[in-house]
Design a protein around this nucleic acid. Structure first.
Lengths: 331, 331
DNA sequence: AGGCTTATGCTCATGATTAGCATAAGCCTG
DNA sequence: CAGGCTTATGCTAATCATGAGCATAAGCCT
């Protein structure tokens, strides 16, 4: 029952929403972890070792993020443990297996200033196909989907299975777009060689000749190892979670306008919401409480400032914000 | 980034539903893992080491369960990684930290026969307070809740916080009972010394005198280490999951009656459902499809046999069965 | 003053849920 | 074999939730 040859790491996905964009805390990769990627265009999630000093994994993680980026985390939940072999290409050369326990954590906007060595990266720079707030992004229709369809046709044996996965993940045919399926979409893009880190993995593969060399690689920001997959897992989880747990409020200042709240949810969900219905949902759901104070910085009629009603946690089992979707951005 | 002194284990929660009761696969504990518990009354979840032979954790786990119990697993998903210190009391004596990656898996009823060294244990023998199919179980009102309230009053400083946790977890006052909060309930019962394994942990504690020795321990089946906590996590997760993913069908034979389906959901949720509304929900939700064949073993009018409609996965983003709750068992 | 912006109240149609009632169609017993 | 038991299944009324949109309010700016 003893496993001696594993490297065990804690991994943090720290998310915030600033200026209407979801942002993730990234750090400069440890040269050790860079593997075969280019250090200039590559970023990494904060990570570090388990230490016996800390009684729980979560405390360990908080300490680690504070050390690396000077940030005191708010909400934190365990996300997933990534332990499959060859996540790190160096394992091919006999390096011990890497097992990463990843956490999803949220911070307030103002934590941005506190960051030391970390940087905040716009999540949609890393996942440009996930932002549907102004309708499906052009890159999806013009670039990714055509390539995905080509890829699906490529292998006659798996054609049907691939086509069906595409339908489900990207909302083709009778399936609606489901903003939660971030990981499924990432995995398809990875398999189709449309994300840059796939190139590194292929280069590191034992016999590069066996796999056709990828042609239509989508440029953009790269992340080390499987960190973009970890982030995809986190985004999908968070998009699901806001619907049934009041976690959005972890991302907002104590007092906020309803539009501020809406914009934050939209930034995470990557979808536009129907304004009036959104208000009704959060107000009637007992999630917020008016303070009577007004914010006149709105550019229009001043908006009332609200606070989160903590009591709702006692009253309802699943007090999420829900997503009253709008077809397009509300006029 | 190397952690040398951790023991890393895979842990399987294998669930099935037979004769209207949810059952979990348990094995005789490894003498090494027994720690301070009594081997006669103690059971364990299947567990084993990570092995470099297997490319993924999930394959590793499947192999392990097959070896230990002769069962080929169906559905499997990662549950949680338990890595806090002192999960194993022996760590106090310098034993390396134990990190367990737990999986939630489902099997068909008939897997029962295939089991070799494992046993199927009724989940509600381990969690008698969780079965509300015939209303709140007497043990809750007569035994656990009174003791919990006493415990809450015990510490004046934490009284309010504890009382509130009780309200939320057990559905007191204005909060409704939420069948998903299995883990929260377990943790309260653990803290209040109402589950047997707490005794073992206290005995192993460095200075037993610091903690008051527990009086009102609830007897019943014990599990090694924190395996009951792992199981609580699994049950809570599954109860949430059936509502938005069609996982119940993994527990049923290919063809089933709607009542069979309902009884299976009820067994997992621990709550009675409204029959007519349940039918409408699964039929109109497109989850099932009638075969035209009848089952005359029902004791009343023969019921139609249904099959799961796989296509639903393409059509709707969240095809769970939903829980049309009934106040009492339907007449 | 008039137009722009955002906030906020209200309505209407539609669909989903809850809670029952009622009937159907087997079996079993007297 | 009728009557009562069981379970299956169809149907409805009331209530509640959701999606879409209209209309008005109340700031600012020119």
């Amino acid at each position: 029952m003893l496993l001696t040859h594993a490297r065990l790491a804690l991994n943090a996905v720290v998310l915030a929403v600033t200026d209407g964009a979801p942002r993730v805390l990234t750090v400069t990769p440890d040269p050790d972890d860079l593997a075969l990627s280019d250090p200039r265009t590559c970023c990494a999630l904060p990570l570090g070792p388990l230490s016996d000093e800390h009684a729980t994994l979560e405390l360990n993680l908080r300490h680690l993020v504070f050390q690396q980026a000077g940030i005191h985390l708010g909400y934190a939940e365990q996300l997933y443990t990534f332990g499959d072999r060859l996540r790190d290409p160096r394992e091919r050369d006999g390096a011990p297996r890497l097992v990463s326990i990843a956490y999803l954590t949220l911070g307030r906007e103002d934590a941005l200033a506190a960051s030391r060595s970390g940087r905040w990266t716009n999540v949609y720079d890393l996942f440009p196909w996930e932002d549907h707030r102004d309708g499906p992004p052009p890159i999806l229709r013009d670039h990714l989907l055509p390539h995905l369809h080509t890829w699906a046709e490529q292998d006659p044996a798996r054609r049907d299975a691939r086509a069906q996965r595409l339908d489900i993940a990207f909302g083709r045919r009778d399936t609606p777009w489901d903003e939660e399926r971030v990981l499924e979409r990432y995995e398809l893009l990875y398999e189709a060689c449309l994300v840059p880190e796939r190139l590194a993995d292929l280069r590191a593969a034992a016999n590069p000749a066996a796999n056709p060399i990828p042609e239509p690689l989508h440029g953009g920001v790269a992340m080390i190892l499987d960190h973009r997959r970890i982030l995809a897992t986190a985004l999908g989880r968070l998009r699901a979670k806001i619907k049934y747990r009041p976690v959005v409020f972890e991302l907002l200042p104590e007092r906020f306008t309803l539009l501020h709240l809406q914009r934050t949810v939209e930034a995470l969900a990557g979808a536009p919401l129907h304004k009036q219905n959104f208000r009704r949902l959060v107000e009637r759901g007992g999630l917020v409480e008016g303070t009577g104070e007004l914010d006149s910085q709105t550019g229009g009629r001043p908006a009332e400032l609200f606070v989160f009603r903590t009591e709702v946690l006692r009253e309802r089992p699943d007090p999420g914000v829900g997503l009253p979707l709008a077809r397009r951005r509300d006029p």
